[in-house]
Design a protein around this nucleic acid. Sequence first.
DNA 1: GGAATAGTGTCTCTAAGACAATATGGA
DNA 2: TCCATATTGTCTTAGAGACACTATTCC
Lengths: 216, 216
Amino acid sequence: MEYERPIATVDIVTLTLKDGALHVALYPRAKPPFEGAHGLPGGYVHVDEDANLDAAARRVLRDKALLKGVYLEQLGTFSGATRDPRGWSISAAYVALLPQERIKGALLAKADPVPRKLPFDHGAIVKAALARVRSKSVYSTLPTFLMPAEFTITELRDVYRIVLGIEKIDLAGFRKKILDLRAIEPVEGKMRTGVHRPAQLYRRVVKDIALFDRTI
Amino acid sequence: MEYERPIATVDIVTLTLKDGALHVALYPRAKPPFEGAHGLPGGYVHVDEDANLDAAARRVLRDKALLKGVYLEQLGTFSGATRDPRGWSISAAYVALLPQERIKGALLAKADPVPRKLPFDHGAIVKAALARVRSKSVYSTLPTFLMPAEFTITELRDVYRIVLGIEKIDLAGFRKKILDLRAIEPVEGKMRTGVHRPAQLYRRVVKDIALFDRTI
DNA sequence: GGAATAGTGTCTCTAAGACAATATGGA
DNA sequence: TCCATATTGTCTTAGAGACACTATTCC
């Protein structure tokens, strides 16, 4: 026996750093339901063109001009009879991380506390995304995907501070850990200058995240 | 515009311990496709009776008489045009853990290496489930859900050894860590006897898993 | 020189790991 | 008594954290 098939969609929680806090990218909805309201980018799975859900998520990112080198991982699947007014629905949620300058045309809203009045269960999805990113950042180089192509160790340390909500992280210890992992490498001859000793610039060397033995 | 809706199913990777190794519960498929073959328990989402995917997963467990106190978590969602001969499909995969004596009527197959010739992409799903359970067991009390109601610390230590693939874990250090966490408590007056000093029996006290600061 | 941050070295202290010592019941 | 495992205690050592010290640039 065949059962009625649920609606199948993907939704992307695109997180970035702005003004020292995590922000989520929201876009106005072009069609009902919730037409005009700002929500997570997403949409129907296109069974004729998407090879799978990952491909559907990448297509959504492409439509928003968020393309190359974006960190993307499946967050979880949200479902139920009541989350979408159109009927029983399944939404595969993804988390994307990228530096702010890569995002154009989106409304960047503070991710914590989660913005009020998001459509569907997008509030719960953003909350889950934040929890995932925070817990994973404790023992991985996930926050490097929030950095621009080149960054100093101090800047990376500050991003860890923001993501993890830690008031201070000792720079000497942080430097040792992050360099021992060999997940970033110095960019030859490039320094960040200022009214102080110039700092070495680094870039991420691994495509995926690297894991620490312990915690940051 | 509405797109054609994919098939929506749930699949459960039920892991247990047997003969000192992780095993996965397989059941013969009653209907096509792959009728008669052994595969993961699962089935269509019933939009008329399931409140959401978690409820669908619990219904599948209930149908297999695996009911109370089963640890269940969403593993991830597997999808695509080709994984199911019936068409573009989405399967929400779940991991369930329970002690062997709770499982009746299933074929228990060694989970590592993954059994050959499983239907659909069930091989990949089992592989992902194993990876999830192993990585999470490093820093949590997840393996306690593989234990019967009462167990000794030595028995729990051995389960960690099996799940993590570690040849030896010092019992004294393990005892300290697991007791400090207060995730298990002694069962008053109950001891496991043998041809040696009797051992205190313990039971799990937390409903969910508890997390270690570091690793086992 | 002074200010500010980058980068290195060192000390302390905790905690993990190894392992010794003791406890207890059955044969 | 001995054997086997349970349970507790102790010693050593690696590593994290704190922080002092030096380096380098601009003013």
